[in-house]
Design a protein around this nucleic acid. Sequence first.
RNA 1: GCCCUCAUCGUCUAGUCUGGCCCAGGACGCCAGCUUCUCAAGCUGGAAACACCGGUUCGAAUCCGGUUGAGGGCACCA
Length: 526
Amino acid sequence: MAELELKIEKPRVRIAPSPTGPLHIGTARTALFNYLFAKRYGGVFILRIEDTDLERSKKEWEKDIMEELKWLGLEWDEGPLLEKEGYIGDFGPYRQSERREIYKKYIQKLLDEGRAYYCFCTPEELKAKRQYFMSIGQPPRYNGKCRNLTKKEIEECLVQKKPYVIRFKNPNKKVVFVDLIHGKIETDSSEFGDIVIAKDEQTPLYNLAAVIDDFEMKITHVIRGEDHIPNTPKQILLYEALGLPSPKFAHLPLILGSDRSKLSKRHGAVALKEYKKEGFLPEALINFMAFLGWNPDQDREIYSLRSLIKEFSLEKCQKSPAIFNKKKLVWYNGFYIRQKNIDKLTQLCLPYLIEAELVVPQIESKKYPPVFGADTISQIFVIKDTGEIIEFDKIKKIIAIYQERLKVLSELPELVDFFFKREIVYPKELLKWKDAEDKDILSALRKAEKVLKEIEEENWGAEFLKKVLVEEAERFKVGDRGYFLWPIRVALTGKEASAPPFKIAEILGKEKAIIRIKRAQELLKL
RNA sequence: GCCCUCAUCGUCUAGUCUGGCCCAGGACGCCAGCUUCUCAAGCUGGAAACACCGGUUCGAAUCCGGUUGAGGGCACCA
């Protein structure tokens, strides 16, 4: 198989989501694998919106699917050109709803050649038949009642406006195909009988629509989830009936929830946008998703989209399903946050600070704040609680000291809120280090206040503060700096855990730092 | 019920095709230690798996058969 794959030239693949909900993480992974496969072999990646079911399809979901794919960096490279302003040179997706004329031809052909037929059975009849088959231990399927209707009978029904569907005349034979991941898969097509392939002469159902489109779009490799394995023989039969060549198939293992069932809403977030909103970076999502069912045979965990393209191959795909492990995603995210350039990271974080109402951008910008990761951003912000002005660079400093602590962007506000509050609230017990008594804490804080007051403004920097405070801490209690440093840190932050107090004090500034130390003293006296 | 697919640490997996180098390697998570005022990061160490039964073989995680378990599918959804 290895040699075969190397010969792959300019493959054409597609991701074909139906816009019945926001982009699902499973669909995103399938898109990624298709994208990687296409790019690895210099091929084409297509987006096709499967919106034949008008009832359930919505424009808003279509928009979400496109937005999230772009956000992930999985741009499709073919489709109808978008001419609207701002989209010059951009491709739109193919939409099945816009291809009815094409389908019509094929459906008519099937009908004319007697490979498909009208069926006038009612849903109730069908349901009863299915149950009957089940009861006698056979697979539920259509019994073929309308299969041999005469022309006259059909016309009569049509004239009477009887509701109908179009069924495929199943040749009932053994269908064999070679899956690029699973190998040979055999099915007896009589298991599924005469399936419905269209609602009417120009509205194909999924299986037919996929077959027609994949042929029309010259798709060479159909890479999709394993849940489509049972559809494959149906589609192969349709290719045969239409006299078309079938593409190659590769079925990816499914992503499961922690209870080993197909990943769904009850397992937590499944929409990609929810992960985006929670503050996951596309790099982390891509890296994580790639490793769900795929692995290079090296002990390397970190891969960018670029490096994945270089390494990707279907042979290294797993056959067995993978459980979605959010902790690993979080780890990846923390890693990529730490790697991020601080300016970029700050830009990414700003929307969260704004949403938490910690700061308000002062310069109105059209693109801001709703667009995450916008290029144009305000350089000046107002701290909502105090009305003070805070510059981008100052916010950057705050984020810098939390960069290695951040796992997901959305946790930032709760980590750094004390920088943006006039008064911080915390229980007085929090000031206590080990067995320190109130008077010890008080004297530590008084000492700290005195020391801090003596520092000249121009020396007010983390390094100097550290030097001075650590020296003092050593004097205060030999062998355990905590008696001195812990209360200071709590006084400044109001938190059990935080970045080092020296860095925090530097950013807070002399005046505020001292006010907070004093406040802690008052709290102790209560 | 019927069909299909899958099976290595809790999880993602390397190794399986081309049996011995594997009393099974890496990563996440977990535990311990170092560092340290705290948290995080980093470093060091640790616990942790070849589903089961039988066969082939001098030798099996690897090959064969079966069992069990898990997942998916069986729509006028995709």
